[in-house]
Measured scan of single mutants.
Amino acid sequence: MLYRITVRNADGEKLEIVVEMSEDEVRALAEELRKAGYEVRVEPIPEGEEP
């Protein structure tokens, strides 16, 4: 499935990426980023919607 991941650092800089991963993989990635001090938001992209 496609997911949009938005990551912000302490300075407020934002990075937005689209990935194709399983829900478990995305959850693990988000958890690791949060542990590293980043603010993370994950949104699933519905099938048929443009990323």
Rank of each mutant, 00 (worst) to 15 (best):
G12Y: 04
E25G: 14
A36M: 11
Y3L: 03
M21P: 00
K35E: 03
Y3V: 06
E13V: 15
E25F: 12
S22P: 05
P46A: 12
D11R: 12
E39K: 05
I45L: 13
L33W: 12
G12D: 04
E20R: 05
V40T: 02
V19M: 06
L2V: 07
R41D: 08
V7W: 13
E50W: 11
E23K: 08
V40S: 01
P44T: 12
G12K: 03
K14A: 09
P51K: 07
E47P: 14
E50H: 14
R34C: 06
S22Y: 11
Y38I: 02
E32G: 07
T6A: 03
V42S: 01
E31K: 07
V18G: 01
G48E: 06
L33A: 02
E47Q: 14
A10I: 06
K14L: 13
K35V: 04
V19A: 05
M1Y: 13
I17M: 10
A28Q: 12
E25H: 09
K35S: 05
R34F: 07
V26P: 00
L15C: 06
K35M: 05
A36Y: 12
E25D: 07
R27E: 12
I45K: 04
E49G: 14
E23I: 07
D11K: 15
V40F: 02
P46H: 09
V18M: 08
E47T: 14
E47N: 14
Y3E: 01
R27F: 14
G48L: 15
A28P: 01
E31F: 07
E20Q: 15
R8P: 01
V26C: 03
E49W: 09
V7F: 14
K35A: 07
A36S: 13
Y3D: 01
I17Q: 03
V19W: 02
R4G: 01
L29M: 08
V26S: 02
E23L: 07
T6N: 04
L29K: 03
P44G: 07
G37D: 02
E31M: 10
E49A: 11
E47V: 15
S22Q: 10
E39R: 06
E39Q: 08
R4W: 06
V18H: 06
L15D: 04
E16P: 02
S22L: 15
P51C: 10
V18P: 01
E32P: 01
I5W: 01
R27K: 09
P46S: 10
I45R: 03
I17L: 09
I5K: 00
E32I: 15
K14I: 13
A36G: 13
G37V: 01
E25W: 06
V42Y: 14
G12A: 03
R34Q: 09
I17T: 06
Y3M: 03
R8V: 12
E25A: 15
L15W: 07
R27S: 08
Y3C: 02
V18I: 11
L15T: 11
P51S: 13
E13K: 13
N9Q: 10
P51D: 12
G48C: 03
E23Q: 11
L2F: 10
N9W: 09
E50M: 11
Y38E: 01
E47L: 12
A30N: 01
A28R: 09
L29V: 08
R8I: 10
A28G: 09
E25V: 05
D24T: 12
G48W: 12
E39D: 10
I45P: 03
R34H: 04
L29C: 03
R4H: 05
G37H: 03
V19L: 06
V40Y: 01
R41N: 15
I17H: 03
R27G: 09
E43H: 10
D11V: 11
E31I: 10
R41I: 07
R4V: 07
L15Y: 15
A28K: 09
G37Q: 01
L15K: 14
D11N: 09
L2R: 13
E39G: 04
R8E: 08
I17D: 01
E43W: 06
E39F: 08
G48N: 15
A30P: 00
E32C: 15
P46D: 09
V19F: 02
E50S: 13
V42Q: 01
E43C: 12
L15E: 05
S22G: 07
R34V: 10
V40R: 00
E43D: 10
A30F: 04
I5N: 00
I45G: 03
A30M: 06
L2P: 04
R41Y: 09
G12H: 04
G12C: 13
G12P: 01
D24P: 09
L33I: 06
M1T: 09
G37Y: 06
E16W: 07
G37E: 01
I45C: 05
P51L: 01
M21S: 03
V26I: 09
R4P: 00
I5M: 04
Y3Q: 04
A36C: 04
E16T: 09
V18W: 08
I5Y: 00
A30T: 07
K14Y: 13
P46R: 10
A36P: 04
A36R: 15
G37A: 02
P44V: 15
A10S: 10
K14H: 12
L29S: 01
V19P: 00
V19C: 04
A28N: 11
I5R: 00
E31D: 06
E50L: 11
G48H: 13
E39S: 10
E16S: 08
D11I: 15
R27M: 08
V18F: 11
V18Y: 11
N9S: 09
E20L: 14
T6P: 00
E16R: 06
D24M: 12
G48K: 14
V26Q: 01
L15R: 15
I17F: 07
A10P: 10
E32W: 14
P46T: 14
G48F: 13
V42T: 04
K14E: 14
L33M: 07
K35L: 07
E31N: 11
R27Q: 09
R4I: 06
A10K: 13
I17S: 03
I17P: 00
E20K: 15
E32F: 12
E31S: 13
V26E: 00
R34T: 08
S22N: 07
P46M: 11
E23W: 04
V40N: 00
R41E: 13
M21L: 14
L33H: 02
R41A: 15
S22R: 07
E23R: 04
P46I: 15
P44K: 12
D11E: 10
D11Q: 13
R4M: 06
M1V: 09
A10N: 14
R8C: 05
R8L: 11
D24Y: 08
E47A: 08
P46N: 13
Y38A: 04
D24G: 09
E20T: 13
V19T: 04
A30Q: 05
D24W: 07
E20F: 12
A10Q: 11
G37P: 00
E50V: 10
P51E: 08
E49M: 13
K35H: 06
E25Q: 12
N9Y: 08
R34A: 06
D24E: 12
V26Y: 01
G12S: 03
A28C: 02
E16A: 09
D24C: 04
A30E: 05
E47K: 15
A28L: 13
V19S: 02
E25R: 06
A10V: 07
L15N: 10
E31V: 13
N9G: 10
E50N: 15
I17C: 04
L29E: 01
V40K: 00
G12N: 05
P51R: 05
